[in-house]
Simulated scan of single mutants.
Amino acid sequence: MRKSDVMCPTCQAGYRRIELTSKGGVAGEFRCLVCDQVLELMDGSTEVALRLTVQPSKTSYAY
């Protein structure tokens, strides 16, 4: 298992990323829950989970 932190380059939302290398996952993409920016493209070779941990203030970005 690998743990890391990911930050959205658009709105600065923070995410905790967990990757299980021992388990296959689903191919697809993960988008920021705050601003919809693509944060990661997943090929399905591992199981990846992202959880919002730091929500930015609404004044720090513009749509």
Rank of each mutant, 00 (worst) to 15 (best):
R17T: 03
Y15W: 10
A62I: 06
K58V: 09
E47D: 15
V54T: 12
T46Q: 12
V6Q: 03
M1L: 11
D43I: 11
G44D: 07
G24S: 14
C35L: 08
M7A: 01
S60L: 15
R17S: 08
S22Y: 05
Y15G: 02
L50G: 00
S57T: 10
G14L: 03
C11H: 06
P56N: 08
S60W: 09
T46A: 15
M42N: 07
P9R: 12
V26L: 14
E19A: 00
L33V: 10
D36M: 09
R51C: 12
K58Q: 14
F30W: 06
F30C: 01
S45D: 07
C11A: 11
K58L: 15
T53D: 02
V48F: 02
C32N: 03
T21Y: 06
T46M: 12
S45T: 05
G25P: 07
Q37G: 04
E47Y: 13
E47W: 03
L20T: 08
F30N: 02
R51T: 14
G14R: 02
S57Q: 11
D36K: 07
S4T: 02
D43E: 06
T59R: 12
Q55P: 08
P56Y: 07
T10W: 07
V48Y: 01
S22A: 13
C35S: 02
G28S: 08
R16H: 14
E29Y: 02
L33G: 06
D43G: 05
E19K: 12
C11G: 13
L52I: 01
Q55S: 15
R2C: 00
V6M: 05
G28C: 08
Y15M: 11
D5K: 07
G25D: 09
E29V: 12
E29M: 13
